[in-house]
Design a protein around this nucleic acid. Sequence first.
DNA 1: AGCATAGCCCACCAACTCTATAGACTTATA
DNA 2: TATAAGTCTATAGAGTTGGTGGGCTATGCT
Lengths: 139, 139
Amino acid sequence: MLSKKSQYAFKALTYLSEKYEQGPVLISDIAKKKKIPLKFLENILLELKKAGILDSKKGKGGGYFLQKAPDQITMATVIRLINGPIAMLPCVSLYFYERCSNCNEKVCGLHDMMVEVRDATLNIVDNRTIKDLLVNGKG
Amino acid sequence: MLSKKSQYAFKALTYLSEKYEQGPVLISDIAKKKKIPLKFLENILLELKKAGILDSKKGKGGGYFLQKAPDQITMATVIRLINGPIAMLPCVSLYFYERCSNCNEKVCGLHDMMVEVRDATLNIVDNRTIKDLLVNGKG
DNA sequence: AGCATAGCCCACCAACTCTATAGACTTATA
DNA sequence: TATAAGTCTATAGAGTTGGTGGGCTATGCT
């Protein structure tokens, strides 16, 4: 399941997409409009910034804004950053790989099945961007 | 991610599949062979029993055994039971549905995308059984 | 320079989940 | 009736999640 943090991240990104190239947006504005706890949102936005998805400006007239176009930010990137692995097992993860204890990947039926699930999921989230979250202007 | 509990469950079910229709298997036997903490395994097997997947016999000569054939137990069933929802959002779950707070499912891009992911995943785990975990006799 | 603005950073907390264990209880078989 | 083996309840430590508080730092305006 996606954490609440992830859902907040997507809401914020949706909002920022609507304001893309319209100047910085205040954290407090996002928090209010999307009903996200302000301080929690702060952490999320900062994380997105450090990952190069958002950028910010301090001081008066400052705020957060997208660093790339909405259709250049994949769902997979955001999920991995905020939520963690997409795969259902560490031994099957591309970005968070860890080998199995007590089990040989070469002859593990579960491993093979989870590779299938991973690929089916990636086929979607790698090919969708936060632009796709904008369904007739609402998020 | 699948919890450790889920992985243990699949290991145990794999082992019991290999012994299908060969009489009850001791918890301690499963625990030893599959390197699962015994008391933890106890809870897991009991849960599987209550869900109608396993059955057991007490007393001498007792143990656990599959209640249905390995190819009649879907992966989806076990995952839902031990791990929880398969969907990435409650508002998209078939068996653990909860409506979104602060968001209208009818016009939510994230919702629609997560439906896609859910269906892609279900397409696999609904059509695979624990029999498919038996790759040349190993689990 | 000085002040207000607004993001940055650090530390902390309560609640919950996950993993695991302990011990007493019940039932079945020989 | 002794013993084997599953059942049940409770608990505990570690880690994660969701959230808050307070001070620091950079920016822009006057």
